[in-house]
Design a protein around this nucleic acid. Sequence first.
DNA 1: TGGAATATCATGGGTATTTATGGGAGTCAA
DNA 2: TTGACTCCCATAAATACCCATGATATTCCA
Lengths: 172, 172
Amino acid sequence: MPVRRREKTGKSDRPVTSFISTYENKVDRKGRVSVPAAYRSALGTETYQGVIAYPSLTEGTIEAFGRGMLDDLNRRKLDQTLDGGDFTQALVGKSDDGLVETINAISSELPFDGEGRIILPAKLAEHAGITDRATFVGRGTRFQIWAPEIYEKHQAAEVEALRARLSGGTVV
Amino acid sequence: MPVRRREKTGKSDRPVTSFISTYENKVDRKGRVSVPAAYRSALGTETYQGVIAYPSLTEGTIEAFGRGMLDDLNRRKLDQTLDGGDFTQALVGKSDDGLVETINAISSELPFDGEGRIILPAKLAEHAGITDRATFVGRGTRFQIWAPEIYEKHQAAEVEALRARLSGGTVV
DNA sequence: TGGAATATCATGGGTATTTATGGGAGTCAA
DNA sequence: TTGACTCCCATAAATACCCATGATATTCCA
C-alpha cells in the first residue's frame, strides 16, 4: 500500500489534466453538445464521467473542469478546518470568504452520455449566449465554453491588446 | 517518518460527499419535498437513508448533511477531548466546544420516504420562511434549504461581492 | 506506395428509465 | 374520530441509454 502524504496539505495525487486548443461543435435540439475527445481523454483518469460547469463571474462564458478539481477544493477546505479543530467553519461556513461555497452553489454537474456529450442547461447557455454552436477553449487546468461569435471578438480583442503591449517586440 | 494514525486525527475514510448545484422543488400540502436526486446519490454510500438538518445559527436557512458527517464531527470532537483537547482548548481558547453539542441537540433526522422525499418540520420551515417551494443549495460538504425568494437575493449579493473582488481573472 | 479496410468522432434520433410530484389507503396514538 | 405519519401507486416530464450515419483519420498489406 503506497504511503500517501496528503493529510497535511490536503493535496491530492490526481494528475493535472490539461485542456488545450479550441474546438467548435454543434448544439443539437436537445441541448446536447459533444465535449472534444481530447478533453475527454484528459479527464480519463477521473472516476466521475462528466464535467463541472458554472457561469463565469466576470465574462459571458461558461467555466468548466473535472469533478476531481471541485472535490479537491471541498476536501481541502474540510480537512483544513476540522484538522485545526475549527468546527465553526465546517458547520456554519462563515470564516471563509464564500468563494468555494458559492462555486459549489452555482455549479452544475454535467455527466457525459454514451457518446461523450453533455447537456447544456438553459441557464448556462443563456449566460454565454449560446444557441446552436459552442466553442470549447482550453485554458490548461480548465476550459471555457463560448458562443462562437462572441469568442471570436473576445479573442481578437485579446490579441489586439497583446499586440499593442508588445509593439516593437515579437507577438507571442 | 510519521505514520498515519487514524485514531489520532479522527479522520474517516468516508469519501467527501459533494453537494453541488442548486435545485428548486415544490413543497406539497403534507410538507413533503423531494431531495434532489443528485444529493441522494451523493449520500448513497451512507447506511442511514435520510438527512440531518438544523436551523442555521447565522442565517434564515436550513443546514443539512448526511448522517456520516455528523458522526465524523462527533468522533473528531471525542478524539480531540481524549487527546487532551481540554488542555488544548484552554490554551488556544477555541470556542467550538458548545457548538457541536448544540448542533446535536437542535438537529432533526429527516428520513427519506420511498420516493426520496423528506418532511420539513414546521419549525424548520418557519425558520427559513419556506411555504410551498424550497431551494436546495449545494455547499460542497453540506447543503442548505432556502425559501426561493430569499435565496435569490442572498445569492445575488454573494455573487456581486465575489465579482467585485475578482480582478477579471478566473475564479478557480 | 496506393488504396482498401478499420477505427474514431461528431452528430442525429428513438426508446426506456428516472425523477418530481400528486393523491389514496393503511397504521398508530391520543 | 381526528390527525400525523408511513407506505404504495399513478403520471407527466426530464433524463439517460441505445443504435445509426457520415465524415475523418489511421492502419494494414499486397
